[in-house]
Design a binder for these strands. Sequence first.
DNA 1: CAGCTCATGTAACTGGTTACATGATTGA
DNA 2: TCAATCATGTAACCAGTTACATGAGCTG
Lengths: 181, 181
Amino acid sequence: MSLPHALLTALLERPCSGSELAGRFDRSIGFFWQATHQQIYRELKRLEELGWITALEPEAGRGRKRAYQVLPAGREELRRWTGEAQEPKPLRDELMVRLRAEAVIGPTDLVRDIESRLAQHLEKLALYQEIERRDFPDGGVTRQRELQHLVLQAGVMAETLWVDFCRKAIAVLSEADVATH
Amino acid sequence: MSLPHALLTALLERPCSGSELAGRFDRSIGFFWQATHQQIYRELKRLEELGWITALEPEAGRGRKRAYQVLPAGREELRRWTGEAQEPKPLRDELMVRLRAEAVIGPTDLVRDIESRLAQHLEKLALYQEIERRDFPDGGVTRQRELQHLVLQAGVMAETLWVDFCRKAIAVLSEADVATH
DNA sequence: CAGCTCATGTAACTGGTTACATGATTGA
DNA sequence: TCAATCATGTAACCAGTTACATGAGCTG
């Protein structure tokens, strides 16, 4: 249940409205946690009811922008949750299911799809490295910057892994194709 | 929507009952796709209604073991799905949300949790490497074995990444702790 | 035949997704 | 002033999770 805490974090970094949050979830925060605007509005309402956030200008509803800020109770809840133990989620990837299916039913078009994934991961890797070069030329200086850098590095590491794996998979699938024909 | 296709793959590898499938989802298949027995039974019923699988012995219900095998229509569906294009799912990890929260609200107990995660990832990595040593001493020989090996390697790569990342995170969090006190 | 375990199954709930609706603001 | 766009919101749905129930078969 990370969404409420991702929202608290985002609102602490800078108070803003639901639509702005949706925008931020398409960029920085969205690199490691995604949310649609429907989820965000639903959750903001809940957080307000819980007394963890409050609207800055108590003006009314539909169509009018409504910015929120975090209340002390929200900050306290975020602190509690951040230090809480969590089990690491096991790997869960559709591509692995497909590879295992290929192993059973023989050659399919899967290799085409992996080539296209490779291109996308290369693109994302380049994006992250560009951001890293621009925003963290000397790593992080303050504690906050170091932690932000760390999260970005996780993205770089993950995309690098995917690039490596896609190349390996393409090699295996192509080689096997040749041997089969 | 991988579960039906994971089940088709498992049943092609070896026809079996729901409870046996649940067991297999705790081991090999479960390393990259998890499912509870409730999900499995629900899905098996659906697959049978779709005409993709059929019970081997048409004996009745509750309490009696019911083994299934894949029908030609099921195999065809699996082939179709395997070659289908899929967008790579973006990284989505609670730990990144927590790190970002730490960056905003200052030191918490997070580093303890990461130390415990590190131990778990090391354990899983050792398990995967043990399986690799035992089952793939010379890599894969046939196409099928090579693909199975590839999937296992993905597990090794992912756990290695997590081990590296946890160590990096512990370094940053500890160092920052010292600087803060 | 009592009690245990195995195998199958039901029900309620949660987080996330998709499709659609409506009020407010802006600018040609 | 009206069409486009922005901001907020409702509803239905889907995959996955948790808790619990019940029939079948085995063992002491």
